[in-house]
Each structure stands twice: as C-alpha cells, then as structure tokens.
Write a protein that binds this DNA or RNA. Structure first.
Lengths: 209, 209
DNA sequence: CCTACCGATCGGTAGG
DNA sequence: CCTACCGATCGGTAGG
C-alpha cells in the first residue's frame, strides 16, 4: 500500500485524511464517495479507483484511524513507565485530545463508528472491533502489570469513563465532564497497590498500606 | 397526537414501534421512509403523510423511544425508595434489558442515536440531548438524595458504566462486561453514606460511619 | 486519473 | 391512505 512515495500513495493518504474527518462526523455510512470526491476536487470515479469498493474505502479509513490514534495517544504514553503511570498517560492524552477539540472534528472516531457498526456484521464491524479489542487488551495488560486484582474490569471501567466523557461533552457541551472523568480515573488508579492519588503526598507515606 | 383511538393513531403507533427497532440498528439517518413503508406493507407516501417530513418522523421516533425507556426502566424503579435503592433499581433494570437482548434489537437506542447526532446540530440533536439531560438529571437528583458529595460526578459515572457495558457487549459479545458494570455500580453505591455493598452485612453495622 | 453513464433509492410532491 | 411522479444522489461500471 505505502511501499512507494509515488503520486498514487500521496493522493491515497490525502483521501484517507479527509475521510477520517468526514467519518468522525457522519459515520462510515454517511461517508459517501461523491462528497469525499467533491471536497478533494477530484472525480468520483477517480477516487473510487483507489479503493475499488465503498467497503474497501471504509476499511482503509478504519486503518488510518487506528494509525492516527496510535500516534496521538499510545506512542507518547510509551515514555511513561509500565503500569499505573502509563495508564494515566494514556487516559490523559486521550482526554486532552477530546477536550482540545483538535483530534477529530466529530469527536472520537471510535465512539462514532463503534455505535454505528455494533449491529452491522461484516468486515467493517470486525475491523473496528479488532482495533477496540487491541486497545482494551493493552489497558488490561498495563492494569495487570500495575497489580490490579481484576485487570479486565479495570480496563472496562477506564474505557467506559473516557468514552462517556466524549459522549457527554459532544451532546451537552459542558467541559465539567472532563473533571468528572479525571476524578473517576484518579479513584481507579488509587485502587492499584502502592499508587497515590494525583496531588496527594509522596509515595513514601502510603507504601506501607 | 393521541387524543383519539382512531385508525390513524393506531397506524401511527405501529409505524413508530417499527421505526424504533430500525433506528436502534441503523440510526435515525439510516431509518428511511421507503424501507419503513415496505416493512409495514404500506405505500411510502401513505406513511409519509403521517409525519410530513423525515425530520418529523425522526422527532416522533425519539419521543416514542423516550416513552418506551420511561415505561421499561424508570417506571418500575419508582417502587424502590428514593436515593440509593432507586439508583440501583434503575441501573439493574437498564442492564437487565441490555443483557436479555429484548429491549431494542440494536441495543440501546440512546447510545446509537446520541453518537450519530453528537455533531449534527438541529432539532433532532436537541431532542436526544434533552432526553439524556433529563435522565442524567434524575440520576443526579437521586444521588443527591442519597447523600453523594458530588451528585453530578456520580450521575456521570453511572451513565458511563451502563453505556460502556452496552457498547462493549454489542461490539465484543462477551457478557462478562455486565459483571464488570455491576461491580463498578456496587462500588459507586458503596461510596454513598450508610449504604452497604450488595450481599454484605446488614445496614446496622455501617450506620454509624 | 477522467467523462459519461447505469439502476436503485433517497426525501418529497401532485392529485386524488 | 393510494398511484405516479420529481430531481438529487447513491455505489458502481465502461472505456479511455
């Protein structure tokens, strides 16, 4: 796909960047080839030729979203140590993007498309589900490293809180939900052994608990 | 709208019941007049005449969903006393519906449509947002009655957990998320003053805390 | 990457 | 509640 830097690959990347924005607002069904072509000032069939079917365009868009998420949220958090610090770094990076509104114009791509495809079986559903399972799995792994007694539940709650913040912020527009989410995450992390709450005293006092 | 029991009102109710099912799977945009008419074995224009525009059909569907939610989740929970017991009753009723898969065929109508409309301003967005605000407000009120130190946060977390369970169940199909959600809700309720955890000792021992 | 086209379906209207 | 229709747009194809 990207094994050369020819014009085709450049055009394809430009198409997918725009497709991501459109899909995070209108979903992967609402992403139409005609509209995408018009915004990119190219012909519908010219764009179509890059993918061969709408489904292939949708799958490529899901792949591009996964790459963007990895680069924006996962990659920077790898600088934090394994376990609780990395869990906090991932949650902070994700919430910061949602709050600053500089992530996707339509909020979280995964929130929008997972709700859209939760009842539409097929390759697109499977691609979205696979990406989400990968990230939930990464959260679960970090929770396990951090000593959580129930890493699966921990990952679920972290996921629910950040997705809930996205949903409530997009619908009601009140940024107080980010404070709620951070407080919930603080309490989640405080469950982990030997992990003090944000802004509390240094770890020494609590290490004996 | 329902001030008579004539044939028009009966037909309208049948249309909306079917519209609810379609919209919880394919969203309120994916709900098309032609498909709805075909499933109900009536003409497209005959159905259209009941509403006058697609937007009016969408708004009527949102109203019908609110009524169905109220009857299925809120109404039964009113038998539980104010505060923590009612919060648990609401959460249990909601999770039971999601788990039994007998609520909407496409999972939670509100999860599907709020993600779909979070970036589409207009009357449909406002109707969905209004319904969600009403229920979040009810949760917040009950949390306040139960003595929560931060009812807004409490309501947000409860909302996030049940919506997260819906989302994960629809995408991954693993019912363990309902156990995760119930555990999270137990811990949330345990934060409230004088409220023991499900299955723990009776309230007497804790009343002094 | 283009023009020109296809059948199907969209929301909506005319007229009854 | 119907038949018959409208212009627009959908995904996709032919042929270059």
């Amino acid at each position: 796909m990207e094994r050369d830097n020819g014009k085709g690959a450049v055009t394809r990347a430009a198409i997918l960047a725009r497709a991501l924005d459109l899909a995070s607002v209108d979903g992967l069904e609402g992403l139409t080839i005609g509209r995408l072509a018009k915004e990119l000032e190219m012909s519908k069939s010219g764009l179509f030729a890059h993918f061969g079917s709408k489904q292939e365009l949708q799958l490529a868009t899901v792949g591009a979203a996964a790459e963007r998420f990895r680069a924006a949220v996962i990659e920077p958090a790898l600088e934090a140590p394994d376990g609780a610090p990395r869990l906090r770094a991932i949650a902070d990076a994700y919430l910061a993007h949602l709050e600053d509104d500089d992530y996707y114009p339509g909020g979280c791509f995964w929130a929008a498309t997972s709700a859209e495809y939760d009842d539409r079986p097929g390759p697109v559903h499977d691609a979205i589900a696979g990406a989400l399972d990968t990230w939930l799995g990464a959260l679960e792994h970090q929770a396990q490293v951090a000593g959580s007694p129930d890493p699966g539940r921990f990952a679920f709650e972290l996921y629910a809180v950040v997705m809930g913040a996205n949903s409530r912020f997009r619908m009601a527009g009140d940024p107080i939900v980010f404070a709620y989410a951070r407080e919930a995450i603080d309490r989640l992390l405080a469950e982990l052994p030997g992990n003090p709450r944000r802004g509390s005293v240094e770890q020494a006092d609590l290490a004996q608990d």
